[in-house]
């Protein structure tokens, strides 16, 4: 039985989730588009890559975005823990550059439970923490001819503490700001990771 994407998406609030893969940034941005209020994006300050608000504007309003540039990985974790515990920001996105151990993951999870905010960690592949509620793999996919005007993505849930796994081909329509599920993909764990 194919699992339904909207059972586990938008992500469960007051938990910390993880996403990896080349489409992780757009996964976070589309998640931000589902909610309201400010979004805190914790980034490593030493990174040369920049978020481009002109590109983000197709997904959600960049005026809602607050970027915290942390000088070290420890600071990045401390900032997201603080923000999650405070709860003033409904969504905290953290770019992780170092593998999280169980203690760090659990601290984030507890902070999110206290504050009620959703946490999302963008992790490099294979660097997740066991404390995460769900882990996703997001990758862009080649759009078919008839869907060429929207953003074609493939999302796969590869870890879920309270639900089933699944993989979906989704479409983001820029003009309508809506997410469509094209077709649930037959369950082949790890297939998306192999191609990304």
């Amino acid at each position: 039985m194919p699992a339904n994407l909207f059972d586990s998406y938008p992500l469960r609030p007051a938990r910390v989730h993880e996403v990896c893969g080349p489409g992780a940034t757009s996964f976070a941005a589309i998640l931000a588009a589902q909610g309201t209020g400010p979004v805190l994006w914790v980034r490593p300050g030493w990174s040369h890559e920049a978020l481009n608000p002109q590109g983000l504007a197709r997904l959600f309003d960049p005026a809602r975005l607050l970027i915290a540039e942390a000088p070290s990985p420890t600071d990045a974790l401390a900032v997201s823990e603080e923000a999650l515990r405070d709860g003033a920001v409904p969504l905290v996105v953290t770019e992780i550059t170092r593998p999280l151990d169980l203690r760090q993951g659990r601290r984030l999870q507890l902070a999110a439970k206290t504050g009620g905010s959703t946490g999302l960690c963008l992790i490099p592949e294979g660097m997740g923490s066991n404390a995460a509620e769900t882990r996703w793999h997001a990758a862009p996919r080649l759009a078919a001819e008839e869907e060429a005007d929207s953003t074609a993505l493939r999302w796969e849930i590869i870890k879920n503490k309270s639900g089933t796994l699944g993989a979906w081909d989704v479409l983001w329509t820029d003009t309508a700001h809506r997410l469509h599920v094209v077709s649930p993909v037959a369950e082949r764990p790890g297939s998306a990771r192999a191609s990304g």
Partner: peptide
């Protein structure tokens, strides 16, 4: 403010 005491107020930015 609280985050700013940790990483510096200038490092919290908006676009």
């Amino acid at each position: 403010t609280r985050i700013g005491t940790r990483i510096g107020l200038e490092n919290i930015r908006r676009l």
